[in-house]
Design a binder for these strands. Structure first.
Length: 479
DNA sequence: TGAAATGTTGGGGCG
DNA sequence: ACGCCCCAACATTTC
């Protein structure tokens, strides 16, 4: 092997130059580096990127192009239907003798990576993969019985005292690039942007890229995290980190977040401690999906395959568009569609309504979130929806049914969140903001609301919906 | 990281 | 003074 032949750094969801294990190791070889992104037009499995994710990816690629250019290099972009064939092609064009990447963990990606690694090694290339996107890789965790954890708390206890993996700082000043570059396609060739005006709304909401990720973290650690344990439940406040899309796309890594928490905070304090545990919920989600790869599509608890869902396209559509008649739910669904993101407390509330009151399969909700969230992450999304459906790892018991009225009153007591996203209810007083159908007709009129026209009546009566969900669960138990 | 139903307790009004 | 009732507040259990 020639020491001056190029090395391909294969980029997937690790759009950052800092804290990058594969890149660090690549630079240390002293070889010229070819940064490569392969856009797979026809990925295997059911989870091709959703619309919001594609929009984000487009911006991420542009950010990364700029970033590599600033370093005197390039980002090579290829659109393909066959990742292995395209990678082999680039290897041939460049004369590369090594390929490095950071590991991914979802089932389809793992299958591709295993095949690629086998084939390239058979062709006598040096192939290395690295831990970069997780604090704890799933294959290193098991219970005393040698089984995967299915409950968060024991999982957390088992791994919380492990030393944090060290930050991997690439020596960017030692970067070398080849003198001749292979051809690259343009970001536009990936055809990631939809024809709708949707992206304009997303663009006003999100700054995409590595710098923006660091700014988000700075802002969160500059105070917000101290109140996180309580403020995280109030959707009208900036009480959460909003780092989820940045973690999803690797603009920032969990090591960077965890190390700063350790360095700058006392983790016995409630705020930083609760946030750290949330970071480990992400680890738990990856752990579950890794060990139970079917859980993106099927319930972890197999008896739930027979749950008597009552699929109904109209109900689903009303939920998707934020027209259920329950203000806190509609506010959440509209925030999601308009910004590509929804506050986590509200995610639980809207999920409960869809799965319980409306008896729609959790997979339908998971799919909508997958298409509309900029942070759509297969592991977290699957875990979250199975949690809501009562059929997953450490799930809420099925009979835990959120009351959308009291949840609204508890977590949006002044109605600020509802008024922001459901402006037609703006003039309604706090007393009725979470249950407009209870308002006297004069009050509604004064607020300029004709119920059923300006704003829908409740799609289902809460008490009746709750009773029906419990009956469905009872039927499942007896089946 | 619930909610509702049911049970228990204790204070106050009142005959 | 006492028993009775009502009800709020809290605790427990049930879904």
């Amino acid at each position: 092997m020639s020491a001056s032949s190029p090395l391909i750094y294969w980029i997937r969801t690790d759009f950052r130059l800092q804290d990058n294990a594969a890149l660090k190791a690549a630079i240390e070889t002293g070889r010229p580096i070819v940064p490569l992104y392969l856009h797979d037009r026809q990925p295997e499995g059911n989870w091709a990127l959703g619309g919001a994710a594609k929009w984000w990816l487009h911006q991420a690629l542009e950010d990364f192009l700029t970033r590599w250019k600033a370093k005197g290099g390039r980002l090579i972009l290829r659109v393909t239907d066959d990742v292995l064939a395209e990678l082999s092609q680039v290897i041939e064009e460049t004369g590369a003798e090594a390929v490095y990447w950071n590991r991914r963990y979802e089932p389809a990606g793992r299958a591709v990576d295993e095949r690629v690694k086998r084939e390239l090694k058979a062709a006598e290339l040096e192939v290395r993969s690295f831990q970069n996107e997780l604090l704890v890789e799933p294959h290193t965790v098991s219970t005393g019985q040698g089984k995967p954890y299915k409950v968060y708390t024991p999982f957390w206890k088992a791994i919380k005292d492990r030393p944090l993996p060290a930050i991997e700082t690439p020596a960017l000043d030692k970067l070398r690039f080849p003198s001749e570059w292979p051809r690259s396609e343009a970001v536009e060739d990936c055809a990631l942007l939809p024809e709708l005006d949707w992206p304009e709304k997303l663009a006003t909401e999100w700054q995409v890229g590595e710098d923006a990720a660091q700014q988000r973290l700075d802002r969160f650690l500059d105070g917000v995290v101290n109140g996180y344990n309580e403020a995280r439940d109030i959707p009208s406040e900036e009480g959460t980190s909003r780092l989820s899309p940045y973690l999803r796309w690797g603009h920032i890594g969990p090591r960077q977040v965890a190390h700063r928490l350790h360095a700058e905070f006392d983790l016995r304090q409630a705020g930083p401690q609760v946030y750290m545990k949330e970071l480990y919920w992400r680890e738990f989600a990856y752990n579950v999906l890794y060990h139970f790869p079917e859980t993106a599509d099927d319930p972890l608890r197999p008896e739930f395959k027979k749950f008597p869902w009552q699929e109904d396209a109209k109900l689903l559509a009303a939920w998707q568009r934020g027209k259920t008649g329950y203000p806190i739910v509609d506010a959440g669904m509209r925030q999601l569609y308009q910004t590509g993101w929804m506050h986590n407390r509200v995610r639980m509330i809207v999920a409960s309504l869809l799965v319980k009151h409306l008896l729609q399969p959790w997979q339908a909700g998971a799919r909508w979130f997958w298409d509309t969230l900029v942070d759509a992450d297969l592991a977290s999304n699957s875990l979250g929806w199975q949690w809501s459906g009562g059929c997953g790892a450490d799930a809420a018991p099925y009979f835990r049914i959120f009351n959308p009225i009291t949840q609204g009153e508890k977590f949006d007591p002044e109605g600020d969140y509802v008024r922001q996203w459901v402006p037609e209810l703006k003039k309604l007083s706090n007393k009725y903001i979470h249950q407009p159908w209870e308002a006297p007709s004069g009050t509604l009129q004064a607020a300029g609301i004709r119920l059923g026209e300006d704003y829908p009546k409740p799609i289902i009566d809460h008490k009746a919906g709750r009773a029906r969900a419990l009956a469905a669960f009872e039927a499942l138990k007896n089946a």
